[in-house]
Every structure is written in structure tokens, then in C-alpha cells.
Design a protein around this nucleic acid. Structure first.
Lengths: 263, 263
DNA sequence: CAGTGGTCTAGACCACGCG
DNA sequence: GCGTGGTCTAGACCACTGG
């Protein structure tokens, strides 16, 4: 009797999921069925299934014909190194979009632009005075019309005043990195941070996240030879994205991972 | 009345946490206090606080003198690029350990070694026959005697038979990457994957994870010029770790992030 | 001992959405 | 309509741990 009932029930159900007895998309027994099956009250059933929901294994669907179903996991791969390297010859219209279509999905995105004063932490990343303002370009990204990730990029205000296109609330065809390079602000170094955490309510809202879904956060600070020129916060829904990078001799990797050869 | 009570209560408490009214380590009101304060039943209070627990904001401490406290977040930075690059001249005894001590913490680790047959997925990563066996070297890593991350590294069996040290259940002083290089298996390419997800119960157990703690998973496949020679699964507790890499001209970055200069 | 959270019960009413 | 999960109540007993 070391384990409480709700954990035992959760373990049994979890076992059926990981062993494949229950497959992706399958329905679990309903709550009344589980009450009968284990002879417990409804709250205990819900405690048990709440564990599975928080583990991201199960999704609850209200309404008749609903129930609890085993979550599907479709993973989109994002190549952090391919997106924007110093001397990328290919004129990519948009790194993320081409990634998505190459993996056989449909891509769309929504831009918004705001001007806001920087938190001390952000000001330090951009190496500007605290409380100075910056341009925030937000891009919510949809894969097959489902929100998948969002990107917040901050540019120092003086840079935006020099390169006015940054102040336009529209997609920049050639990509902002390329635009900056054309105007003499070639990014030659990147500082990349990877973080895993639970979403804020705002993120859960924007990305339509189920409970039990994590966030994969990729923070990229871009530097010219003189100074940092931007910070990007890439917020990925953890259940539908992974990030990939490669180092060294890419040829060897392509030989063993054919899907990795940049087409 | 759009929002249910428990969400409203959670929002108020969350607001106090993110705004700084409640600071890290502070105690929330007790459950009876929250019942009185909001005029709701205990279960509703628990539904509210369960949200905060699952968001990783709050930790429950049983027993007299316990309560619910705002979680502390201490972040250890792991430099994925510094760990093991092809031509690293410095003879690091252990990349991870030196990272930890450089950040002012105490480091320790526990090794275990097992031989196991590979899942189809793993066999494909190592480019060996399905169901063939491999050496698994597991390393549980402690920072200030708290489990912080674990690393599972798989080597193909034929390689381990050539380099017998891989079969010893002990730390390899110069590091396995260096050892392999000395024996003619220099790794010249890396394939890195970053994933965020909830922990499995086994991981939660090994790492002593609180509910609401995520996993930051870094999978590194190492290649020689001939073939993949190892796969490492770095499992980081999301609340205490981040991964950093740099690309391009490191000198610029060091100028703006002094702490990043490899000492 | 006394007060904390941990588990569990037995009910109730509601919102949703497929048939 | 009616069965699904969503929310909420009012109780109960337990395990743990600081004073």
C-alpha cells in the first residue's frame, strides 16, 4: 500500500500508453468506467488522469463523443544553424517558412509590431541603457493553421531609425538578417540559449497549448563586429517542435541522415 | 463569471508572484486561510494551487512548518559547444565538472554501466542492426549534492570491444571523447537535438523533480569521418539548467558578455 | 501536540456537443 | 437528449514534522 490509489491507476494507464496497448488517438475508458473498474470515487479517477494530462500523455475532450484520448505527437524540426548563418548564399525568403514546407506542411504567420521600453534584463542583452525603448517584432507561426511557435525579436531603437523597414509592421521579404547585412550590419556572431519551462498563461493562450505542454525557448542574440543588434525569443510548443543543429563536417552526417542534406 | 473560481484565485496568486509581492522562498497563505479569504471549499483552493504547482511557480512542503512556497530558480549554464569540440587543446578532465566549479558550485557524479540491446530508434541513430547490443554509460550529475542532470551515452558494441576502457564502470579521467580520439576515432561532426517535454516517472525519480518541472533534453550524436560512434542523451532538470552555444566570432561576444570568456 | 499538506469519499450542478 | 468532462461543496482520515 505504499502507493496511493490514484498513482496506481495512473501507472496502469500510463503503462498501457507507453507499451502501445493504447495508441495515439485512442480513447481511454470514461470516468464512470474507471470508477467501476477500480472501485474508487470520481475525484480519485480525476486525480489519476490529471497526472497523465500534466505529463502530456493524455488530452481531455469535453462533450458527448469526447473523452480522454492519447495525445498525438507530430514533431516539426527547426534547424537553428541553417536559419541564418553569416555567409548563407541562398536567398531564402524566410528561413522558418522554407523549413516547414520542406517537411511537407503548410506555413503561415502573423506579424505585429510594437515599441516598448526594455526590462533591465533585456537592456543588458542589447547593451543599451535601462528603460530605453526598442522595436519588438512579434511573429506568430502556424503549421497547417495550428499555432506552433512564436518569435519575439527586439531591435535597439537607434538601429530601427537607421533602417526604417524595421518599423514597418509587415513581413520583410528577404528576411531581417539579410536586410541588416545589406545595410552594413552583418551579424558575425550568435549567442544561443536553450531553456525548457512551463508556459505562461499568455503563451498557452497564443499557442493554444493543452495542459501538460511545455515550452522550448531558444534565445538568440545576434552581434555585428561592433555590438549586439537584436535578441530573438523563439517560443516553441514543446509537443510539436524540436531544434536541431550540426557542428563540424556536415558531409558525414548527411551520409547517415539523408533527410538532413539541405536540398 | 467567465472564469471559474479556481482560475481566478490562481491568477491572483500568480500575479503576486510575478509582480514580486511574493518573492522566491516566500510562503503562500495556508489552505484554510485561502478558503476563508475567498469563501470557497478546500478542493477549490487545491485546484487553484495545483495550477501554480504545475506551472512550476510554487512548491508544496508537507508537515508542520511547511506550506506552499514560491520556488527558487537557480540556473546552471551548460556550454554545449565548449564541452567537446574537435580541436580542443585544453586537457579537460571532465567538461561538465569544470563548468560547474567555474560557476561556483560543487560537482559530483555517479556512473553506472549496462549492456543492453538497442531499440529500433537507437539502432538507427548509431547506424547498427536493430536489436544489436550496445554499451550504456549512465552518469547522474549532482550540483551541491542535489541531482541536476543525467547523461546516458550509448556506444556500439564493436567499438567498446576495441576500446575496452568503455566497458569499465568508472569515470574515464581524460573524458571518453578524448579517449576515442587517442585511439583513432576522432569525432569530427556532431548532430545536436534539443527537446522540451515533461519527465517520465523514472526521470522524476532519478532527478528528484518537483511536479511542474520540465525536462530539457539534449541529444548529441557524434560522428567520426567514417560513422556515428555514440549517442548521448543529456537530461537536464528544466528548473535548474540552461544550455548555451555560440557561433561565429566569439571575440565580439566576450566583449559584451565577459562571463563567457573561457577562462 | 498541533498544524501543515496528502488522499479520498459522495454527492451536486453545469457546459458542451454529437446523434 | 444525454453522456462526456468541468467545477464545486462538505465532509473525513492520514502522514509528516516542527516546537
Amino acid at each position: 500500500m505504499g502507493q496511493p490509489k490514484y498513482r496506481q491507476i495512473a501507472s496502469e494507464l500510463r503503462g498501457q500508453i507507453v507499451s502501445g496497448t493504447l495508441r495515439e488517438g485512442d480513447r481511454l475508458p470514461t470516468e464512470p468506467q474507471l470508477q467501476d473498474q477500480y472501485g474508487v470515487s470520481r475525484n480519485t479517477v480525476r486525480d489519476a488522469t490529471a497526472l497523465l494530462v500534466n505529463e502530456g500523455l493524455v488530452q481531455r475532450v469535453p462533450g458527448r463523443g469526447g473523452g480522454m484520448i492519447v495525445r498525438r505527437k507530430v514533431t516539426l524540426t527547426f534547424h537553428a544553424h541553417r536559419a541564418e548563418m553569416p555567409a548563407q548564399p541562398t536567398a531564402e525568403t524566410d528561413a522558418w517558412r522554407s523549413e516547414v514546407v520542406a517537411q511537407g506542411y503548410e506555413a503561415s504567420q502573423e506579424f505585429t509590431l510594437t515599441i516598448r521600453s526594455l526590462s533591465p534584463e533585456l537592456a543588458e542583452r542589447l547593451h543599451v541603457e535601462p528603460d530605453s525603448v526598442a522595436v519588438l517584432r512579434r511573429c506568430v507561426r502556424y503549421v497547417n493553421d495550428q499555432p506552433s511557435s512564436l518569435q519575439d525579436t527586439y531591435y535597439p531603437m537607434d538601429l530601427a531609425e537607421e533602417i526604417r523597414e524595421l518599423l514597418s509592421p509587415k513581413d520583410i521579404p528577404q528576411g531581417t538578417t539579410r536586410l541588416l547585412a545589406e545595410r552594413g550590419h552583418q551579424q558575425t556572431a550568435y549567442y544561443d540559449e536553450y531553456v525548457s519551462r512551463m508556459p505562461t498563461p499568455e503563451e498557452a493562450n497564443l499557442l493554444g497549448l493543452q495542459p501538460g505542454t511545455t515550452i522550448l525557448l531558444h534565445i538568440r542574440t545576434g552581434y555585428t563586429e561592433q555590438r549586439p543588434v537584436r535578441v530573438s525569443f523563439n517560443v516553441f510548443a514543446g509537443d510539436r517542435n524540436q531544434i536541431v543543429t550540426t557542428h563540424g563536417d556536415v558531409g558525414v552526417i548527411a551520409r547517415f541522415r539523408p533527410e538532413e542534406s539541405p536540398e
